[in-house]
Design a protein around this nucleic acid. Structure first.
Lengths: 208, 208
DNA sequence: GTCGGCATACCGACCGGTCGGTGTCCAAAG
DNA sequence: CTTTGGACACCGACCGGTCGGTATGCCGAC
């Protein structure tokens, strides 16, 4: 299945040479983001990917499965990234700022996945939805751990529950897709740094 | 259309007595929020509302229309509320705090509408989608005006573009529906105040 | 009698998923 | 070297069912 290639030298090159499951995932992501999960027919996906329905159902159990795989890939990647940043030996504020900024950048880099997350999660079958939520929860908890660490050390204000702060921040992040346009004047990194600044400054202990 | 009632004295009372369009809107809202727009059939809506398809298509041009009316109602109400708070003669910080907190409270009070907004906006026909966006834009601009006012007066930091701050904040607000549960320990007002505090404090000029 | 306010029966389009079949490659048998 | 068999990757016609929308008719109020 992961065999690199069985194609002959004379075959068409370009987009065609990618493995079929890859191509399906790729085009499905684009279509789901653009038209929504329910409005995208399996027929459209396979046509975009240049294969047939038979091929798709050979690799994926259902249309649902396709969506799930997209989620799983993104979640794995984001979790990996957060873990690597959060467990470095830099000072806490730097670690949180890096994590906050990175999640913005990666959300913008993969705007499509982000959009799908927002709009189509609830259309997964209940058990798959549960799996996704569980993974997502772990991610949030790791992030929250950073906030709580700062609260214990006195660097951050303690009059706001950490989970409220985390939900506050990830609300902003998840909604990037609804307003961010690549044609805008700010780069992903700039937005990420702005967002991280806003978060960190909101966490400063009140002057009172 | 807004005729109060043509029912006879002996008819069933209770939920039935509400006008038909109202009932349709009400049940459609619940169903759309619970199952998503595409997954809710017209049949389900009319059954929940206790009428038939004929009735629905008598009052609404399409299923799309139903969704649009739901949006329009919410938008009108939120815009009205913002306008009333923003144009009072209280100090700027208080006006912004009130606006920020109020939008959270009203979003929680109408969690269903909020959820629909998030998930189903892009399923409207392009022209209706444009109308909704335009209205939404006006709302954001009014809110942004408050931020800019504070930036000009020196009360707020000027190193973050006002529109980034506004998008940041409304991201958080729009996402309330994905985590807020009425069974939680915080009231809508408490969350609203927390959110408003976070926003106001994030806007404090940096200590430099 | 005609008009608003529905009810009912029905239509055509489309959708996710299935299933019998086909071409290709490789490995073991002869 | 040739044959055979069968695993794998894929094809595409087809099916049952659902959906948004419509056509038509009835019925009470004016």
């Amino acid at each position: 299945m992961t065999r690199a290639s069985t194609r002959k030298p004379g075959e068409a090159t370009g987009d065609d040479q990618a493995a079929v499951p890859r191509r399906l995932l790729e085009h499905a992501t684009k279509l789901f983001a653009k038209k929504g999960f329910d409005r995208t027919s399996v027929q459209e996906i396979v046509e975009a990917a240049g294969v047939t329905k038979g091929a798709m159902y050979h690799y994926f159990g259902s249309k649902d499965d396709l969506l799930y795989e997209i989620y799983a890939r993104v979640l794995r990647e984001q979790t990996r990234q957060l873990e690597s940043v959060a467990s470095s030996d830099a000072p806490l504020r730097e670690r949180l700022a890096a994590a906050a900024s990175d999640v913005v950048v990666s959300s913008i880099d993969n705007l499509d996945d982000n959009t799908i997350f927002l709009q189509s999660m609830h259309q997964l079958s209940p058990d798959k939805q549960k799996a996704v939520r569980a993974e997502r929860r772990k991610y949030h908890e790791r992030f929250r751990g950073l906030v709580e660490e700062g609260q214990r050390s006195g660097e951050f204000r303690t009059d706001k529950p950490a989970d409220v702060v985390v939900d506050f921040y990830f609300g902003s992040v998840h909604h990037l897709g609804s307003w961010y346009r690549r044609s805008g004047s700010l780069t992903a990194r700039q937005i990420g740094d702005h967002y991280a600044d806003l978060l960190l400054d909101a966490l400063r202990p009140p002057v009172g």
